[in-house]
Design a protein around this nucleic acid. Sequence first.
DNA 1: GTTAGCATGTAAGGAGTTACATGATTTT
DNA 2: AAAATCATGTAACTCCTTACATGCTAAC
Lengths: 192, 192
Amino acid sequence: MARRSDVLDLAVLGLLHDSPLHGYELRKRLATVLGPFRALSYGTLYPCLKHLSDQGWITESASEQAATGRRARIVYELTAAGKEHFDDLVDESGPASWEDESFGVRLAFFARTPSEVRLRILEGRRSRLEERLDAVSASVARGRERADRYTLELQQHGLESVQREVRWLNELISHERNTPPSPSAPSPTEAL
Amino acid sequence: MARRSDVLDLAVLGLLHDSPLHGYELRKRLATVLGPFRALSYGTLYPCLKHLSDQGWITESASEQAATGRRARIVYELTAAGKEHFDDLVDESGPASWEDESFGVRLAFFARTPSEVRLRILEGRRSRLEERLDAVSASVARGRERADRYTLELQQHGLESVQREVRWLNELISHERNTPPSPSAPSPTEAL
DNA sequence: GTTAGCATGTAAGGAGTTACATGATTTT
DNA sequence: AAAATCATGTAACTCCTTACATGCTAAC
């Protein structure tokens, strides 16, 4: 029954939350959410949309394009059940949510994520990165004999990248702590 | 016949270039080369070793462990044909060599890579990253209306990470240009 | 004595890409 | 008139992970 990645489901549902879209446009917007790198292929996107439709989370419908004589596009729209499922996904804050593959997507929908969940994800991410720092240090210590200039450069650059992300997370976390949680749901138009 | 990833072949051959190793130890060292993140599973490593052995690039042999009463380990060793194949792989400088998946591995073996190839890979990598910067700028420009605080933070952090890598590459490139190519092969113990 | 680390493998499956197939519309 | 971009999909394949299967040795 093809259990597919929750991350992609979340990304698609989250984008359709704002407005109905057709596949082609969805793919472009996914690039923003998934990171401008790693563009998703149609071979992944369309089967995913089919799946979401089968689950009753989105509906497919052919658009009539008023003025323009464009090809009829298939427009996907979030259902009520889809909104509920999105909320369920967004409420999760387990280890999977702070790994590389999902952390970016989770952050992209933070405006619709409860404040406590946001904090747990940010802190989980930070301790994940700190584990990596330890692993790199250990690795550097072990292989310091056979490392040449280039290997050292690579390790050094990797280390600094992780340290930068930790500092960034620290800022996000302290901002999260200093902003008292809004009584009910956080406003989607929360100011910078 | 299971065409497998050149990147992994390169990484394994490169590590065995230094000294014969058994699978378990190889896997740990691969972590250094492939990035301390993304550790490789045995389900990938052992079939890969089998493949390299079938191609005649490495040999498998049971080690007798002198003193210790350890379990007999299978030690893999590079053959002459394997060294040739490694050199062929290392001479490549096509677009594949500067993508995310392979760039780190290529850099890890720069000490055994000809100087012109090193330069082509570094410059290829840099222009790849500059394409990304353009893509991000375009994406930011397109979506600046619907972006909330978190999406902006994410894009900003991503942008700065790429810019940092470009600056790092600039340093590596200028160092590469200012260091006259050694007459023959570069010394493997090249000083920092 | 039991947990952690050492050590080698296989089978099944997941998540995705590439290549293919098709055709309309817009820009150069 | 050609090339780029819009638009939707499928089939085959790739690379890798997870879970399983097995057993030894070192440390707590």
